[in-house]
């Protein structure tokens, strides 16, 4: 039985692979504790995926008919918010902005996030600006996703 120490790490104390397990209050060993958690989540996901593949078979619609004029294409759910956002950029003059320019700018901003965030500290509470921006982005995506779903439900034969 290993001695279990609690409280903050004392000065001069070194956490090594031998004693890392003795500090349940601060650290866990990557092996086995973290790996067990990782495996648990992965196993749960695998079970969900296997169950879904039997309960809801992967879709396969009818073969391609290139000459059709009545088929209404629908995006996958993870593109629905993007598809919906295009509705706010009607006409040939605006589509390049909604479809390409703005998403490109958003991705450039994503790349620049570490250099844009100059607020000290790591906690989201200590970085109100970035936190608010992130929430606005999440709201935009979720709101547009819902709008897209509602539109597709209301106009199953194609948007007006």
């Amino acid at each position: 039985m290993v001695e279990v120490r609690r409280g903050p790490v004392e000065k001069g104390e070194v956490i090594t692979e031998e004693n890392v397990y003795d500090r349940p209050d601060e650290t866990i060993g990557f092996f086995p504790s973290q790996i067990v958690a990782d495996l648990a989540v992965s196993a749960a996901l695998l079970a969900i995926v296997v169950a879904l593949s039997y309960l809801v078979p992967a879709p396969l619609t009818e073969p391609v008919d290139i000459s059709t004029t009545t088929y209404v294409p629908r995006p996958e759910w993870f593109f629905m918010f993007y598809d919906q956002m295009l509705m706010f950029f009607p006409g040939y003059a605006l589509i390049p902005f909604g479809g390409i320019v703005i998403p490109t700018l958003v991705f450039i901003l994503f790349f620049a996030v570490p250099w844009l965030d100059t607020e000290p500290g790591h906690s989201p509470v200590k970085r109100p600006f970035m936190t608010i921006v992130a929430f606005l982005i999440i709201l935009t995506v979720v709101f547009n996703l819902l709008l897209g779903i509602i539109r597709i439900l209301n106009f199953p034969g194609g948007s007006p």
Binding site: I15, E17, V20, R23, P24, D25, E26, T27, I28, G29, F30, F31, S33, Q34, I35, A37, D38, A40, V41, S42, L45, L46, V49
Partner: peptide, 27 residues
């Protein structure tokens, strides 16, 4: 070296998101 690494305890379940991503990509 890879296995015996002390990792922060309190983020344990949040850090599984990364490994879950890795697992799904491997799948």
């Amino acid at each position: 070296h890879f296995l015996y690494e002390p990792v922060p305890k309190r983020g344990k379940w949040l850090y599984t998101l990364g490994s879950a991503t890795l697992f799904l990509i491997n799948l």
